[in-house]
Write a protein that binds this DNA or RNA. Sequence first.
DNA 1: CAGAATCCTTTGCGATACTG
DNA 2: CAGTATCGCAAAGGATTCTG
Lengths: 124, 124
Amino acid sequence: MDVIDPLTLGDERCHKVKRVLSHVGDKWSVLIIVTLIREQKRFSALKREINDISQRMLALTLRNLERDGLVERIVTPSIPPRVDYRLTEMGHSLADPVLTLGQWAIEHLDRIDEANARYDAGNR
Amino acid sequence: MDVIDPLTLGDERCHKVKRVLSHVGDKWSVLIIVTLIREQKRFSALKREINDISQRMLALTLRNLERDGLVERIVTPSIPPRVDYRLTEMGHSLADPVLTLGQWAIEHLDRIDEANARYDAGNR
DNA sequence: CAGAATCCTTTGCGATACTG
DNA sequence: CAGTATCGCAAAGGATTCTG
């Protein structure tokens, strides 16, 4: 099967797709991936650039991304220790569709805000 | 700005994108959108096709999608009442990038599973 | 049929403190 | 610097019951 057809998508496979999308959909994952597109970054740099992420969520999300083979952890044993993160090849291949989605989001932000306002006005 | 550049993405806009992506990333939203691509569906039909969604989450997610102007609610006043849901034009425009992402997910499921297995084996 | 409302459990996640 | 560990709150979400 090359094209998604939810009607013929088996339960098992469907469940897997959901799982993957739930990772991808996670806002921290998306932000980390997007942040790593240009170049690898250190833990502290990621923390600084994604300003409102807690170091707990950064560590957790990075570990999940690493577990999924999307991000690679590069340890330089030194004092103080240095750890860089970079996208794997698979991570980069994911960046494309993610950017497409981000693109859509940016293009439709205003219309969504309008829709929200209209909806809220109607149900007041 | 036409291309996403996280480095030049202002905080305000960045925050909005995050908000949109958090909707889009929501697994129930994604499933509903994908399910509605081909044709409009009734509440009960959606509930049946997305087998493990609770009616609570279905109602809540549909209302959010409607609020965002992605899904339209079509009420046929009859007894028993009939309510159909269909994608708006904006909803359809979102379906494209979402399917692209789903496509990526399907294509990389196996490699992700392998990566998971490798990671778990390494950290045992 | 299509939901709203209530209850109650689980999970997510931030804050804080501690380590190699 | 780059994390881990623990705590505690807030939000998510399932099960169930009720209604136009």
